[in-house]
Simulated scan of single mutants.
Amino acid sequence: MGADTGGFLQIGQVAERTELSLKTIRHYDELALVQPSARSSGGFRLYTTADVDRLLLIRRMKPLGFTLAEMKQLLDAIEVLDDQATTTQQRAAASAELLIYKDKSHDSAERLRRQLAYAEEFTDLLTARASATPRQ
């Protein structure tokens, strides 16, 4: 982590680690999905490793079709489970919510696998057709 930022990461470093654009990271901040843990004296966003982990989780949810609201709910449920001060009832509710999202994630991953198989079939078809076409 950066020596001059007190162990925090600047937004550019976070963008490199997460493969997200600066615009996307700022957008997630505006939506309160992932807010920087600190600000520099100049007002620049500073992130912790936990903030980066949260962004990576969002990045994993995005291709599975989760809405921003669902992302927020899922992140909140994870936060409840990570908090040692939560009650048994809160933990049970958060766990139940995670199971719902696990099922949605599984269904979305299956759909993506099917789409990938179709894309690979199509690519193979094009390769075969291109190979069979005489060149001039």
Results as ranks from 00 to 15, higher is better:
Met1Asn: 05
Ala3Lys: 14
Ala3Gly: 14
Ala3Asn: 14
Asp4Glu: 04
Gly6Arg: 02
Gly7Ala: 05
Phe8Ile: 00
Leu9Phe: 15
Leu9Lys: 02
Ile11Asp: 02
Gly12Met: 02
Gly12Arg: 01
Gly12Gln: 03
Gln13Pro: 04
Val14His: 01
Val14Arg: 01
Ala15Thr: 07
Ala15His: 04
Ala15Arg: 04
Glu16Thr: 15
Glu16Pro: 03
Thr18Met: 05
Glu19Gly: 12
Leu22Glu: 01
Thr24Asn: 12
Thr24Pro: 05
Tyr28Asp: 08
Asp29Ile: 02
Asp29Leu: 00
Glu30Gly: 07
Leu31Ala: 09
Ala32Cys: 04
Ala32Glu: 08
Ala32Ile: 00
Leu33Ala: 11
Val34Asn: 06
Pro36Gly: 03
Pro36His: 04
Pro36Lys: 00
Ser37Ile: 00
Ser37Asn: 11
Ser40Arg: 01
Gly42Ala: 12
Gly43Asp: 11
Gly43Trp: 06
Arg45Phe: 03
Thr48Ile: 01
Thr48Leu: 01
Thr49Phe: 14
Val52Pro: 01
Asp53Ile: 03
Asp53Asn: 12
Arg54Lys: 07
Leu56Pro: 05
Leu57His: 02
Ile58Arg: 14
Ile58Cys: 11
Arg60Gln: 07
Arg60Asn: 09
Lys62Val: 10
Pro63Ile: 02
Pro63Lys: 01
Gly65Ser: 10
Gly65Pro: 04
Leu68Arg: 07
Leu68Met: 11
Ala69Glu: 13
Ala69Pro: 08
Ala69Arg: 13
Ala69Trp: 04
Glu70Ile: 00
Met71Val: 06
Lys72Met: 02
Asp76Val: 09
Ala77Ser: 11
Ile78Lys: 14
Val80Gln: 00
Leu81Ile: 05
Leu81Thr: 07
Asp82Gln: 03
Gln84Trp: 10
Ala85Trp: 01
Thr86Lys: 08
Thr87Leu: 01
Thr88Phe: 05
Thr88Cys: 10
Gln89Phe: 06
Gln90Ile: 11
Gln90Thr: 15
Gln90Met: 15
Arg91Ser: 08
Ala93His: 15
Ala94Gly: 13
Ala94Ile: 10
Ser95Ala: 12
Ala96Glu: 14
Ala96His: 07
Glu97Lys: 10
Glu97Leu: 12
Leu99Asp: 12
Leu99Cys: 15
Ile100Pro: 02
Lys102Met: 14
Lys102Ser: 13
Asp103Met: 04
His106Met: 09
Ala109Ile: 02
Ala109His: 07
Ala109Trp: 07
Glu110Thr: 15
Arg111Val: 04
Arg111Asp: 14
Leu112Ile: 13
Arg113Asn: 15
Arg113Gly: 12
Gln115Ile: 04
Gln115His: 12
Gln115Asp: 13
Leu116Gln: 13
Leu116Gly: 09
Tyr118Ala: 15
Glu120His: 09
Thr123Cys: 14
Thr123Met: 12
Thr123Trp: 03
Ala128Trp: 04
Ala130Val: 00
Ala132Glu: 07
Thr133Glu: 13
Thr133Val: 15
Pro134Gly: 08
Gln136Ile: 13
Gln136Met: 09
